[in-house]
Amino acid sequence: METLINGLSLGGIYALIALGYTMVYGIAKMLNFAHGDIIMAGAYAIFVVIGLQGNLLLSAAALLVAILLCVTLGILTERVAYRPLRGASPLAVLITAIGVSYLLQSIAQLVFKSEGLPVSTGAASLGSVPFLGTNLKVSSLLTLGLCIIIMTALTLFVDKTRIGRAMLAVSEDRAAASLMGINTNFIITLTFAIGSALAAFAALFYLMQIPVVTPVLGSLPGIKAFTAAVIGGIGSIPGAMLGGILLGVIECFCQSVPEISPYTTAIEFGLLIVILLVRPVGLLGKKRREKV
């Protein structure tokens, strides 16, 4: 039970990050490999605000600062690095994204050096609650609850609002969407902003579990969340949620068994390979009809 809740909350973090990958892929048709480093930037913002005296109130304030920084960075990278390449070959955009990723990591290294910096989010002071004979960490429950709220809100936004509908339209056919009067550049910028805001949440939740900031903090969760997005079907919002949760739960269960815990990462990426062999579009991915 404890493992399940921990897995679900880790899965929630992966899902938040995976949503950033999948929405940008769905709408801008590009893989934003700098997404993990946006989380890292958010983590440093949280570090600067709360340092070691963290409590929950301060963490909430730090989250706001992190959201502000991440959204600004997300919009900035889209404007400066990706927009000039709209219409260029996907490979050029991909290389640029990798370049942006290294750029952000190097800036963090220059400013904060490469040693890990400890952060106290106040999560540990929350303690745990007994439940059916096990102890559940309150921070995990909090993470899980907030992830569910955020994902529900996002789903409602995309399905029920005018802007959300415009996002779906741009994702399916950018040219046709522009003929409806939709400003596709605005929708793409907005998507980057939403993805980056989710990354800021992920940064705080991540630090609640592992309270150390480094310039490469975003890399592994980034690549795992990307895996989750692909497992769920890249471009699909429910797919990213499902893939993230699935990966988080598998990771925690693997780690709870001493015999297989060293192979956790191998098992996760192995799962990716198996799923892609069986269902190349991912669990909830849709085959897109080629346009003539």
């Binding site: 779906l168 339209a169 040219a175 003929l179 009809r289 346009k291």
Partner: peptide, 12 residues
């Protein structure tokens, strides 16, 4: 404009 090939949003 009604574009060539209709280009309706098939998934909506």
């Amino acid at each position: 404009q009604v574009p060539e090939g209709r280009r309706i949003f098939q998934e909506l």
